[in-house]
């Protein structure tokens, strides 16, 4: 251990004024230089980032609120639309049922009408046929009568003749 006259002995050697001055000068220089070139810019950047994050958070909050509002509106819109669609379907169903009933009704009427006309036609045809038959029978009777008159017949011949004619008529028909 070196003892310097007049100085307290601490550590390896005494307190040296030169070292102290050097340390003081270097530290103050370092304080100044770092403050200017390192801490200053770094802290500025940190402040800037802080502000940036704050504003970003604000923006995010705002847009979130907007999105919430929009989604609420959309949900309402959807609900309304659904109701509308429901009512439209309901109405369409009603209309459809009514149309169905109408169609069935008109078809039934048409059928009835057709049936009626067909029946009338049948009756007419029948009457016409009867009429024709009657006419035929009349002319036949006249012919039979004339033939009977032409030929003198006995009872058996007459019967034979009538049967013959009747058969003839039946064949004709």
């Amino acid at each position: 251990m070196v003892t310097n006259a007049g100085w307290i002995v601490i550590g390896a050697e005494g307190l040296l004024v030169g070292d102290m001055l050097a340390q003081l000068v270097f530290f103050i220089l370092l304080l100044f230089l770092l403050g200017k070139f390192a801490w200053g810019p770094l802290m500025d950047m940190m402040k800037k980032r802080e502000d940036h994050i704050a504003s970003e958070i604000e923006t995010a909050e705002k847009s979130r609120n907007e999105a919430e509002k929009a989604s609420k509106e959309a949900a309402e819109e959807l609900k309304r639309t659904r109701q509308e669609a429901h009512s439209i379907i309901e109405e369409a169903k009603k209309v459809g049922q009514k149309q169905e009933k109408d169609i069935i009704e008109s078809a039934r009427k048409e059928a009835e009408r057709l049936k009626e006309t067909a029946q009338q036609d049948i009756i007419q045809e029948k009457e016409k046929a009867i009429q024709a038959l009657q006419d035929q029978v009349a002319s036949l009777s006249v012919q039979i009568a004339s033939k009977v008159i032409e030929k003198e017949l006995n009872a058996s011949d007459q019967e034979k003749l009538i049967n013959e004619y009747i058969k003839e008529v039946g064949d004709k028909r």
Binding site: G11, G14, L15, D19, M20, Q23, L24, F27, I28
Partner: peptide, 12 residues
């Protein structure tokens, strides 16, 4: 590790 230097800092 020199007392003079640390004491300078603390005095400052």
């Amino acid at each position: 590790s020199d007392a003079g230097i640390t004491l300078t800092l603390s005095t400052l």
